[in-house]
């Protein structure tokens, strides 16, 4: 058995008296595609915020590819290879589509600030390479024709895909997707699932997916972790989880009914703490 690429050991955080996440553990083998589900307010996004350094875990440890990353600044964690998208789209609206992706490429750039100012040859070569890489990412996501537009002017579906492209631009080992299909119609959702499968193969990614659409989660995830009130209540294959009474109760508050095949997606801009 190889060591997991993302190893989360009993992380917790409380906001005042509210225990948002309690002793959350997760072990993602390299190349896995797993799901993280739970009812509204369960703490899923908070888990992502803990993993990516938005919040510092109050207990536990996070290891990414053998390296301990909890307590690092978000940009250092991104540099270590963890990237994410946001439930409420958070693109750089005032930047062009191309610049949104390019700016995320910087973290893998080798020439530093001095070179940028003094415009060395290496810097120029690298800028060209960044541009190239950004354009090919846009190509994959079908956004090439919009490269010059301001991100804020894109249609909703394009913005969702641009978020993934931008996350990929940071060159991650593990990609965290927070409800990437929210607000999409079934057709768009299928296309998105294919896209996730494609980039996962192409970039050798490990993916952790938060999604309210049970159909989608059950379809593409190999394993699922279910949390409710910040506590992990089930873990297993989609079939196992679906049949788990604790899961059914968490979703419906009553036993003997399966979780809904397609829970309504929350409004994309629900007022919530950043991000």
């Amino acid at each position: 058995m190889t060591a997991p690429i993302l190893d989360v050991r009993a992380i917790s955080i409380a906001f005042g008296g509210l225990k948002a996440v309690t002793d959350f553990s997760l072990s993602l083998p390299a190349g896995a595609l797993q799901g993280l589900i739970g009812p509204n307010g369960a703490g899923k996004t908070t888990v992502f915020n803990l993993l990516t350094g938005v919040y510092r875990p109050q207990t536990g440890e996070i290891h990414l590819d053998g390296r301990r990353v909890d307590g690092l600044k978000p940009n250092r964690i991104a540099a270590a290879g963890l990237a994410r998208t946001f439930q409420n789209i958070r693109l750089f609206g005032d930047l062009t589509v191309l610049d949104n992706v390019r700016v995320a490429c910087h973290v893998r750039a080798e020439t530093g600030l001095a070179a940028a100012i003094f415009r060395t040859r290496a810097h120029y070569g690298e800028e060209a390479a960044i541009r190239e890489r950004a354009l090919s990412l846009l190509e994959i996501f079908g956004l090439s024709h919009r490269a010059g537009e301001y991100a804020r002017n894109l249609p909703y579906g394009d913005q969702r895909r641009l978020e993934i492209a931008r996350a990929l631009a940071t060159g991650p080992k593990v990609l965290l997707l927070d409800e990437p299909a929210a607000g999409m119609n079934p057709q768009e959702k299928r296309a998105l699932a294919d896209l996730i499968a494609l980039v996962r193969r192409q970039f050798g990614l490990t993916v952790l997916l938060i999604e309210h659409d049970m159909g989608l989660v059950m379809n593409i995830c190999e394993a699922i972790t279910v949390i409710d009130h910040g506590v992990t209540i089930a873990r297993g294959t989609p079939a196992e989880v679906q049949a788990d009474p604790a899961v059914i109760e968490a979703y419906l508050g009553a036993p003997d009914e399966p979780p809904p095949a397609s829970a309504p997606a929350p409004a994309p801009d629900s007022a919530k703490a950043d991000p």
Binding site: K73, N100, V107
Partner: peptide, 15 residues
């Protein structure tokens, strides 16, 4: 420009 748009997101993107 990215930082000025949203610095916490910029940080998450490795800046």
């Amino acid at each position: 420009r990215a930082v000025s748009h949203n610095f916490s997101v910029a940080s998450l993107m490795g800046i």
